[in-house]
Design a protein around this nucleic acid. Sequence first.
DNA 1: AATAATTTTAAACAACTGTTTAATACAAGC
DNA 2: GCTTGTATTAAACAGTTGTTTAAAATTATT
Lengths: 217, 217
Amino acid sequence: MTQSTAIEPVFNRLLQVAVEVFAECGFREATVREICSRANVNVASVNYYFRSKEALYSQALAFAFRETNRLYPQDAALDKSLPPEQRLAVFINNFLHKLLDDSQLGLHSKLIAREIADPTNALDDMMETAIVPQIALLEDIIRQIIKEPVDKVVVQRYLLSIFGQCLMFKHSRSIIDRLYPNLIADAAAIQASAEHIAQFSLAALSRLTLPKEQTTP
Amino acid sequence: MTQSTAIEPVFNRLLQVAVEVFAECGFREATVREICSRANVNVASVNYYFRSKEALYSQALAFAFRETNRLYPQDAALDKSLPPEQRLAVFINNFLHKLLDDSQLGLHSKLIAREIADPTNALDDMMETAIVPQIALLEDIIRQIIKEPVDKVVVQRYLLSIFGQCLMFKHSRSIIDRLYPNLIADAAAIQASAEHIAQFSLAALSRLTLPKEQTTP
DNA sequence: AATAATTTTAAACAACTGTTTAATACAAGC
DNA sequence: GCTTGTATTAAACAGTTGTTTAAAATTATT
């Protein structure tokens, strides 16, 4: 009696379940036995298919990235023909949904956020593959919004201000859920939050980069 | 031969070392043996003075809060006679330093940030004692800045935008250190970041709350 | 059909975990 | 000095961890 309920081979099943469990528990608290149990495979399978628990984690992380980018492609944000303000709004909305989606898709970003908050050796690989491109895209959008050329470090600061507003919903979710539970209730609420962040950021950008004109009427 | 090098009694030494180790490793990865080893006490001491590892963690967290508020009091931000814009700047600067100080003081906030990102049962106590007052203070400042009365949820959103920009430096520090290592290099750099956040937020607030006047010249 | 290669299994491994125990050392009180 | 209560200790406990092993089952190859 083989327990393989799915057509999926053991390797893939392990990978998917690993994302699930690592996202829930983190690397250390997650146990190989729990992963194997949920995947309906023997305990030894992890060491057979992947070399070790750590190698499985590494591959699960990479897999999570591939999945998020597959499920939430950011075509519209990439479209340079759109006005940059709109690109920013699309970027933020997409990013926030990617972060906060609680469905199975959301597990992937949960795992990623965990890796950022408490990095392992796997973070360095993650940087180049997934994070740097995102950063570059947002940098590009910001530069388009503030038309005049500005110092590199200024763009960095704007970028962090925008990213910070988004990531807060992920990293401090435990607090937001307790204080303002209705802010992340559903997809509509998430979109409303995204719109606020876009508005807030665009307001700041326009005010800060149109210099020396009408501070207060 | 008793190893008690310090005058501090065992109880206090355990508490201080616990903050250190829990901040470095998190609750689960931290081991009782490591804590006792660093405190130069026997392994059984944790269960003798505190009931369990979990109870020690809970007390260490409370201790960390007391220490941060003792070392970084926010008198200036509380001073209602100051103009609210200045209060905001002081609040952000103080908050950011509290978060990012790498000296021994910084360990406390590291532990707290960890608890927020990956909460245990101890979070609920933490909310009322330490977080709600901070939130209330910032809410008050925001309301003063936008003079007209606004909807509660609007204030919440502004608040999260400001907090988010600050917390990003803490929760995504691993990434910032890799991308823009000079942004958190020293106290001056931290202050510069704080000033940016204050400027950015004030710009957004003034633009968003002075409606229907000169959008673009 | 027989052989070879791969996959799956249960059991054991050694290391580490938080906690308990029971003996010892130490101090204070009378 | 002796007793009492507290503090400290080394050792052991029972449970869990990631990993290995060697046999069994399955699949692929000839």
